[in-house]
Design a protein around this nucleic acid. Structure first.
Length: 620
RNA sequence: GCCACCGUAGCUCAGCAGGUGGAGCGCCGCCUUGGUAAGGCGGAGGUCGCGGGUUCGACUCCCGCCGGUGGCUCCA
């Protein structure tokens, strides 16, 4: 990954006399008329534009102009002569860019009230110069645009003025200072977190230790920070979550798709979209082109929808992708375990709606779907935020805000903006609130009113007229990694950790009492496996006590010790984690229980060998 | 990106006013064939994050970098 910073070289000479004469035009040369020119008392600026990020030229010009103006002031020069001089660098930008930058610089200096002259670009020129002898008369500068390009939306966000309220379940909007948080501790923590009024001192989040101990995820020092690796158990859990979310989306009526992970930064549509999305990007170079890695699946889906023929009969039209990965180059200090990554898996659905009213209807349905998904995943501790522009709030209080409040049935944190800074007029999120008071957004739905036009996405209405749809963005569960984060934090909070049965890497652990029971234990495990469950056998040379202990520490929901008594009776002593006791049952009873607990969820085979003695340890 | 702290065996950590390092767990071997949260004995395993500097000598002191964590900033 590279992120070339645009740069410029300047050689500043304070000349009592400077004369140049264009002699021969090159192919790349600009139009130019007239013969030699001569200037007195001038700051002559020999300059070269070097290779770099076109997106950030403005900052470059601004900085160069500042340097030049400063020098003019210092040496008291009467005028500026810009002189394109390619020989200052071996890393030249392309001529078109160089000329553009040069012209912009000329214009900017003029705006600053300076007398500016310029020699032609792309010509052989003869020149002579008499440089003054004072100490500051000669100066060489290399100018770089500050850091990397920062999307305008990130800047806009800083300027956005927020008004905070609590929306009660019956639809009343209460100023946040007047709300009684007594029965709503998580919401209070979340509001404080969002409004930055209060920050508790915290330690490393609990899930980091757990994700390593359970071999779900770990840091990979050989990659970029925030790009984690997932050993078999982690991959299994991610697959299951992805599959489950995908099934829900398809049941909801969304169509699957897959789109590229990288896009041309020079593409005009994407260029303007980049500036509307507050995220930093990874940039990859390929054959001289600069490509950014997607930070969501919007681009690909929008480009696909823009090339599609769509009529009003097909609306609402829903398309999704489990975007793997979405990349966001978050700042180093913001990265934290599975809570905040630079590469993550995002279920991203887009819905084309006929108009605002259909969009609102869909928004409410997708809110309900998001809630169903989070609960199925085993996440119950979350609070709701609604962000909305004042205009949209006022126009849709009765048909949107109040029904939304009723649907949620809990107090909602509302952030209201006087103006629309982003591409959406409203969005909600379900935010998981950690024990430490930190919050992380999971599900979200947004109503986007500007990208249909930007991407040229249209549908044909009843009268044969092309119209722009309203677009909804929806991540029904939030990032898959973040779902696991929430499950781990939740487990820590409860004390006795466990995953929902359908997500447990091992659902049944068999412990043969002696070596001569191993074959029969294996036979039971295979039976379970054939019925679609994940069972394994602890064949290691250890005491039963220790095997039980380790199975408990792995959060295995069902543990069975198999010995002569079981062989005799056919009854299994099943240690049920959730209930913390041993329940006697037949194999079929156990299977029935597993069936019940995993109904409606995807199934996948063991991620690891069935025999524990054959398993590597992946934890560092 | 800024500030602070941390980086020693696979893991968790101890250690050294500067003289080439330890424990527990894990791993391997042997004994133990066991009844629901740690059985016993033995063994192997380390460029002390990386690169410079100071020093006769650096895991230890200094500088830089990389990685992690916390805070700030940030988080459609």
């Amino acid at each position: 990954m590279t992120c070339a910073i645009p740069s410029m070289r300047l050689l500043l000479l304070h000349a009592s006399r400077f004369r140049f004469e264009p002699t021969k035009r090159l192919e790349i040369g600009e139009d130019w008329e007239g013969g030699p020119r001569e200037f007195r008392e001038a700051l002559v600026v020999f300059t070269t534009v070097e290779k770099g990020d076109e997106a950030n030229q403005e900052a470059l010009v601004e900085k160069a102009a500042g340097e030049i103006a400063k020098q003019v002031e210092t040496v008291k020069a009467e005028r500026v002569v810009l002189y394109p001089y390619a020989h200052l660098s071996s890393e030249l930008s392309d001529p078109a860019t160089a000329l553009k930058v040069l012209r912009a610089l000329e214009g900017r200096l003029r705006e600053m009230g300076l007398e500016v002259h310029r020699a032609p670009f792309g010509w052989y020129k003869a020149f002579s110069v008499e440089v003054k002898g004072h100490p500051l008369s000669e100066l060489s500068k290399s100018i770089k645009a500050e850091g990397e390009a920062v999307p305008k939306a990130l800047v806009a966000e800083k300027k956005a003025v927020s008004h905070w309220f609590i929306l009660t379940p019956n639809g009343d909007l209460v100023p946040i200072e007047e709300f009684d948080f007594t029965a709503h501790k998580d919401l209070k923590a979340f509001a404080a977190y969002e409004m930055k009024k209060e920050r508790r001192v915290t330690k490393e989040p609990a899930h980091v230790r757990l994700m390593k101990r359970h071999e779900i995820a770990d840091y990979e020092p050989a990659s970029d920070p925030g790009n984690l690796r997932y050993p078999p158990k982690g991959r299994l859990m991610k697959s299951l979550i992805e599959e489950y979310v995908e099934e829900e989306l398809q049941r909801y009526g969304a169509m699957p798709s897959e789109t590229p992970v990288m896009y041309d930064m020079g593409h005009p549509t994407l260029k303007s979209y980049l500036n509307r999305f507050p995220a930093r990007q990874y940039v990859v170079e390929s054959e001289g082109r600069r490509l950014f890695l997607r930070f969501a699946a919007c681009f690909g889906q929008f480009m696909l929808l823009a090339d599609s023929t769509i009529t009003y009969r097909m609306l609402p039209l829903r398309l999704y992708e489990i975007a793997k990965y979405a990349f966001r180059r978050e700042q180093r200090g913001e990265l934290a375990g599975l809570r905040r990554l630079r590469a993550f898996t995002m279920p991203d659905m887009h819905t084309l709606a006929r108009d605002e009213s259909q969009a609102i209807e869909e928004f409410l349905r997708q809110t309900a779907l998001s809630r169903k998904v989070l609960e199925a995943l085993g996440i119950r501790r979350y609070v709701t935020a609604l962000r909305i522009t004042r205009d949209f709030y006022e126009r849709h209080r009765e048909d949107f805000v109040v029904p939304f409040a009723r649907l949620i049935g809990e107090p909602i944190l509302v952030e209201m903006w006087d103006e629309r800074f982003f591409y959406f007029v409203t969005k909600f999120e379900f935010n998981y609130v950690e024990a430490s008071g930190k919050a992380a957004a999971l599900s979200t739905v947004q109503i986007d009113v500007e990208n249909a036009e930007r991407y040229g996405i249209t549908y044909v209405d009843e009268n044969g007229v092309r119209r722009y749809p309203v677009i909804l963005h929806c991540s029904v569960s939030g990032a898959v990694e973040r779902v696991i984060y929430a499950l781990l934090e939740e487990a820590e909070r409860r004390g006795k950790g466990m995953f929902p049965t359908w997500l447990s890497p091992t659902q049944v652990r068999l412990i043969p009492l002696r070596d001569d029971m191993l074959e029969e234990a294996l036979a039971i495990a295979r039976k379970l496996r054939n019925r679609g469950f994940r069972a394994d056998v602890d064949d290691r040379d250890m005491t039963v006590q220790k095997k039980v202990r380790e199975a408990e520490m792995e959060w295995v929901p069902y543990i069975v010790v198999y010995g002569p008594k079981e062989r005799e009776s056919g009854i299994l002593p099943v240690r049920v984690r959730e209930e913390g006791k041993i329940i006697q049952m037949g194999l079929e009873d156990l299977i029935e229980r597993l069936e019940r607990e995993t109904r409606g969820f995807p199934r996948r085979p063991n991620a690891l060998p069935i025999l524990l003695s054959r398993r590597p340890r992946f934890s560092r």
